[in-house]
Simulated assay, not measured.
Amino acid sequence: MTSTEAPLRYTAFTSDPEGGNPAGVVLDASGLDDAAMRAIAAGLGYSETAFVTRRDEAARRFRVRYFSPLAEVAFCGHATIALSVALAERLGAGDLLLDTSVGEIPVATGRDGSGAVVATLTSVPAHSRPAGRDELAATLSALRWRAADLDPALPPHVAFGGNDHLVLAAASRERLADLAYDFDALAAVMREHGWTTVNLVWRESPERFHARNPFPVGGVVEDPATGAAAAALGGYLRALGLVVRPTTIAIRQGEDMGRPSDLLLDVSPADDRVRVTGRAVPIAQAGA
């Protein structure tokens, strides 16, 4: 593919083209400047598009940049999964190495029993810290939530897995499902603190979470699947001491917006990197 051809369209963390989180994929962006990449991302309208700006197919190593409709994003998990599946479909399954703005991201790709490509990214080191009182108050106000809506067993944190995300745990599934926030107010709070999304979660069990991710700073009301926020959540759970042995955690996201997505996290108390696994499938384009 040359930089003048149309971008590919995939949806990540699903095997259903009607589910998951759509992402643009440009396999050769070597001839595109920042303005052109921003324009392509805005034209697609997806939360992020991945652009390969340099490639070494023999070494299976690729320089990648990510753009939302409004701005460049340092790292994007779902677009990484989409890109990795697209590359594996063309180059064959195997290990990939992506050079991103946050560092090297190894991705393992393989095929499941049905022949579909499955990709597992390994995050940069994840970490987490308690949210400040002012950070929390401003966010709750923008969300139109109360402190009583939060799960006291899962305290608010700012967690990092490639980007910073505020993690707020809802006390009930009903609270998570009822999301009607002030778009401009939440965007302002997030810009002030440098957060990529607010990661709203509800814990169904120790190994299963439901999530929603408002993303107004990217010009998107909500992300249906957020791989970077999932990696950050893994670091958060590890920081709280809730991962005492190597554990696989399932995250269900996008259900409340009609685009169900499934993300798997592998978290270990002995490793500060989190592994995020998912599938991706092409989206049919109009007229194709």
Rank of each mutant, 00 (worst) to 15 (best):
T11P: 00
M37D: 01
L97A: 13
R90T: 11
Q285P: 04
E48H: 06
A79E: 05
D95K: 11
A284V: 10
G194W: 03
L91Y: 00
E18K: 13
L166F: 02
P106V: 07
L176P: 01
D223M: 01
A211K: 00
T11L: 01
D134Y: 10
D112N: 15
D112T: 14
E104N: 08
S68L: 08
R61D: 09
R60G: 09
V158K: 07
V244N: 14
L168T: 04
G19Q: 03
D112A: 07
T49L: 06
G287E: 02
L121P: 03
L143I: 08
T53G: 08
D134W: 12
G20D: 02
I249D: 05
D223K: 02
A185D: 11
E204V: 13
G218V: 02
T248Q: 14
P206R: 03
G45A: 10
W202M: 04
P156E: 13
D262Y: 14
T80L: 02
A108L: 14
R245L: 10
T226A: 12
E192T: 15
M257P: 00
G278D: 08
V52E: 10
T226H: 04
E255K: 09
S268I: 05
F183M: 09
H165P: 13
S261N: 05
E89T: 04
G113W: 06
G219V: 05
A188N: 03
H210F: 12
L264E: 15
L136R: 08
A185N: 06
E18R: 15
E174A: 15
E104D: 14
V201A: 06
D164E: 15
F13N: 00
A288S: 15
A50Q: 07
T49C: 11
L150D: 11
F160T: 08
I249F: 05
V25Y: 01
V198C: 14
L240Y: 11
S172P: 02
A131L: 04
G235C: 04
D184G: 07
G241M: 09
G227E: 01
V25P: 00
S123W: 05
R129M: 10
S172H: 14
A79F: 00
L27G: 06
T139L: 11
M1G: 10
V73L: 12
D34P: 00
A23C: 14
D266L: 14
L87Q: 06
D112R: 11
C76Q: 01
A41F: 01
T196P: 00
A239H: 02
V102W: 01
G234S: 03
P216S: 10
R65Q: 15
A35F: 04
S268W: 07
